[in-house]
Amino acid sequence: MKAAALLHLLQFASPALPIGGYSYSQGLEAALEQGLVTDAASAQDWIARHLHEVVAQWDAPLFWRMLQARAVRDDAATAYLGECYLASRDTFELRAETVQMGYSLARLLAELGVADPAPDGAEISLPAAFACAVDALGIPHEEALLAMLFSWLENQVLVCVKSVPLGQVAGQRLLLALGPELERAAVHARGVADDALSNWSPGLSMLSMRHEVQHGRLYRS
């Protein structure tokens, strides 16, 4: 991997990227409220299950397919995958999250002169905008997929650090412990067949809907 591509990847996968990732928990805050996550062990179990049962089965495989479609300039497939991802957000909060962050990243890319993922102002998901950045900057796809997954993982761990609460050292232990799980998820996402794709996660959807009316929320999802 060339140094320039690595630096671009680090920049666009960084939690310092001003697209608002820190303000979302993707249902984790509701799990905390319901007592499903209470300590480091239950946090690790929750994140690992979310990773393998949801992210590796749908979000990551669609992102991988978006990268492949952009690489061969298949605009129809790129648009279709983006529509599929938006349609899969089955609660108001989860859809608003990816649309807001996708818009913010698309706007940032345009202002930096990197690319313009949504020139007509159409809604764009975060994975679609990130795939556009990866393509425009020549970032290798396997590394981009790992970065996307790590960015998701890091945000989930930070929610636990702030809200369980866990200490900073415990948070770093979580990241280290879940590293092998992240590698497995990436391998699965690259190889999962079309007819095995699934965003079936009714428990997470119910938690997300409860979060919409949860009192005293810190996060937007």
Results as ranks from 00 to 15, higher is better:
1 M>N: 10
2 K>L: 13
3 A>C: 05
5 A>S: 03
8 H>S: 07
9 L>E: 09
11 Q>F: 09
11 Q>M: 11
11 Q>V: 09
12 F>Y: 13
14 S>P: 02
15 P>C: 02
17 L>C: 05
17 L>D: 05
18 P>E: 12
20 G>A: 01
20 G>Y: 00
21 G>W: 03
24 Y>E: 01
27 G>P: 00
28 L>W: 08
31 A>W: 09
32 L>E: 13
32 L>D: 13
34 Q>M: 13
35 G>V: 03
36 L>E: 07
36 L>P: 00
39 D>A: 08
43 A>D: 05
46 W>P: 04
46 W>N: 13
47 I>Q: 04
47 I>M: 08
47 I>C: 08
48 A>I: 13
49 R>L: 13
49 R>M: 10
54 V>L: 15
54 V>Y: 15
54 V>C: 11
58 W>Y: 10
59 D>A: 10
63 F>V: 02
64 W>P: 00
64 W>M: 04
64 W>C: 08
64 W>S: 07
65 R>M: 11
68 Q>W: 04
69 A>L: 07
72 V>L: 15
73 R>D: 15
76 A>E: 07
76 A>L: 10
78 T>A: 15
85 Y>S: 03
86 L>Y: 07
86 L>K: 08
87 A>Y: 04
91 T>A: 13
95 R>M: 11
97 E>Q: 14
98 T>C: 08
100 Q>C: 10
100 Q>W: 04
100 Q>V: 09
105 L>M: 02
108 L>F: 03
109 L>A: 05
109 L>S: 01
113 G>A: 09
116 D>W: 06
118 A>I: 03
119 P>N: 03
120 D>N: 11
120 D>E: 13
125 S>A: 04
125 S>G: 01
126 L>W: 04
127 P>N: 03
128 A>M: 11
130 F>H: 04
130 F>L: 08
131 A>N: 02
132 C>P: 04
134 V>G: 14
135 D>R: 08
136 A>N: 01
137 L>D: 03
137 L>Q: 02
139 I>S: 03
140 P>Q: 09
142 E>T: 14
142 E>S: 13
146 L>H: 00
151 S>T: 09
151 S>G: 12
152 W>E: 08
152 W>L: 11
154 E>R: 10
156 Q>W: 06
157 V>E: 06
157 V>G: 06
157 V>K: 01
158 L>K: 09
163 S>K: 06
164 V>D: 11
164 V>T: 03
164 V>P: 01
165 P>S: 13
166 L>E: 02
166 L>W: 03
171 G>L: 15
174 L>N: 04
177 A>T: 05
177 A>H: 06
180 P>G: 13
180 P>K: 06
182 L>S: 11
182 L>D: 06
186 A>M: 07
187 V>N: 11
187 V>C: 15
189 A>D: 10
192 V>R: 01
196 A>D: 10
201 S>I: 15
201 S>Y: 11
202 P>G: 14
203 G>D: 12
204 L>Q: 12
207 L>F: 02
212 E>C: 11
216 G>N: 00
219 Y>A: 09
220 R>K: 06
